[in-house]
Computed example of a mutant assay.
Amino acid sequence: MSGCTVYVVDDEKDILDLVSEYLTQKGYAVKTFGSGESFLGEFEKSEPDIVILDIMLPDIDGYEICKRIRKNSDVPIIMLSAKGEELDKVLGLELGSDDYISKPFSLSELEARIRKILRRVKRDSIKQDNVIEVFGIKVDFNQRNVFYNGTHIELSPKEFETFVLLLKESSKVLKRSYILERIWGDPALYDERMVDDVIKRLRKKILQYNLPVEIKTMWGLGYKLEEKKDEYKD
């Protein structure tokens, strides 16, 4: 991924220096920021290929920064935290981050995760049409919006990604581990209950917006999105 731009946001200068030096040696163009405000100011001018974002910052915490980024951008985000609490991980990922790594971390592991995410982004951008329509549900990938009968369906970042995956692969039963890997990353790093939680929320949204689909649990296998059966048909 030589030549890709990485923004690193952390209030610990030692970490900024180590990460910057290591990634620069690997061929990345690196910019470092010691505060949320300085990062957001630069981000508004020029987006990088990926952001490495610490949760605990002196002015604006990483969760709030992640929320602000996701209002207008799909740039990949890896969140850093010294806490290591499960709540931190779940909250960060649900706000739209792509991965999570706890301090202290291996620089080689961080770089491996960066490469994996950037490969996935490149693959998806090549394969993906700007707009698809399945079961009458329209997905606009440029704006990350879902519509049905002209109504905008409000989805969180992870709800959007999971729902789109189920739509695009509706002919298959998707294992929880497969969904976890496609949406969050390495299944060994995350709990499959995170998938169940998103599916539960998606089912509520399907009912709320009266969508013509349902997510079925295929016991022992996984989840499958199907078109709702018309109960009034002969």
Rank of each mutant, 00 (worst) to 15 (best):
D88F: 06
L107Y: 05
D129T: 09
D140E: 14
E94F: 13
E94Q: 13
E214Y: 09
D230C: 08
E226Y: 04
L95V: 07
D54Y: 04
E227R: 15
I126F: 13
K175D: 06
L53M: 15
G3M: 10
F160T: 01
V19W: 03
S108A: 12
V6D: 03
E226L: 14
A112L: 15
I60P: 01
E21Y: 11
E231F: 13
V30P: 00
K205M: 08
E226S: 14
L40Y: 09
D61Y: 05
Y190G: 01
E42V: 05
D129N: 15
K127D: 11
L107D: 07
K204L: 14
E47Y: 01
P104D: 08
R182F: 02
E42I: 00
I117N: 12
I117A: 03
D230W: 05
N145Q: 14
Y22Q: 02
V19C: 01
F39D: 02
I65W: 00
Y148D: 02
K158Q: 12
K45P: 10
N130K: 15
S73Y: 05
I137N: 04
I117D: 04
D10A: 00
I65L: 06
R113N: 12
G92V: 08
K45R: 14
E169V: 01
I137M: 04
L95I: 11
M1A: 07
I206M: 00
K127A: 08
S81H: 06
P187E: 05
D230L: 14
D11Y: 04
E154Y: 06
V195S: 03
S97W: 07
D196P: 06
V146P: 00
L174V: 09
E214Q: 12
E231W: 11
I15T: 06
I78D: 00
